[in-house]
């Protein structure tokens, strides 16, 4: 079941141009981020971590520093200073929807800035958080927004499915309309042996 969900999720997300990789440790997450960051010149390089991510994976910062990356702190009052034109944002997802290849998150303003203002975006999703589809996501959302899950009620949540895009000019698809142009989802499967990645890359995917 879990494996089927993962296969389905990866296939759907890949079709939308999302790079999906599966890793077994936070160390590997950091390595992937470092790889991506290496392509950006050091003077404009910014790697920004979402607060929710740090809450979920407190050890990630250390791993990143071990890879030579010093995360840029978020200035919520003046976000333009935080995010240059080529920032890499890393955030955590609460759910993955196999039905649509979406990830879901209920988050705060700082997290949202990370996932919206960075040109490249890495999402860390625990494979245990994969669900079949919208029905489960709707149930989760209801509980999250009402606080029925025991945590304080959330005020803002999103399902995000592929990179930001527009087809408003002659139906021609362009990515990176306002949000990230590049979306990578890293499935974190700490319970399994890493097989070196179940990643499928497909930037050509158009619509479903």
């Amino acid at each position: 079941m879990g494996d089927t969900l993962q296969r389905r999720f990866s296939a759907r997300a890949s079709r939308l141009g999302v790079t999906v990789e599966c890793v077994a440790s936070l160390d590997a997450v950091a390595s992937l981020a470092a790889e991506l960051a290496a392509a950006v010149a050091p003077d404009v390089r910014r790697v920004v971590l979402a607060p929710e991510l740090e809450r979920a994976y407190p050890a990630l910062r250390q791993h990143l520093e071990a890879c030579g990356i010093t995360p840029t702190p978020i200035d919520v009052i003046n976000p333009a200073a935080t995010f240059g034109p080529l920032a890499i944002g890393i955030s955590a997802a609460a759910l993955g929807l196999a039905e649509t290849g979406s990830y879901a998150i209920a988050d705060g303003i700082a997290d949202r800035l990370v996932r919206m203002l960075a040109y490249r975006h890495i999402v860390v999703l625990d494979v245990a958080r994969l669900v079949p589809g919208l029905d489960e996501a709707g149930a989760w959302l209801h509980d999250r927004l009402t606080g029925a899950d025991g945590d304080p009620a959330g005020h803002y949540a999103s399902f995000i499915t592929g990179p930001s895009r527009t087809a408003d000019i002659e139906m021609s698809l362009s990515v990176g309309a306002h949000g990230p142009a590049e979306l990578r989802i890293i499935l974190l499967d700490t319970g399994a042996m890493s097989d070196g990645g179940n990643g499928e890359t497909n930037h050509a995917g158009e619509q479903e």
Partner: peptide, 8 residues
């Protein structure tokens, strides 16, 4: 199948 951003 779904829009890129579904916001609540």
């Amino acid at each position: 199948a779904i829009s890129v951003y579904t916001t609540f």
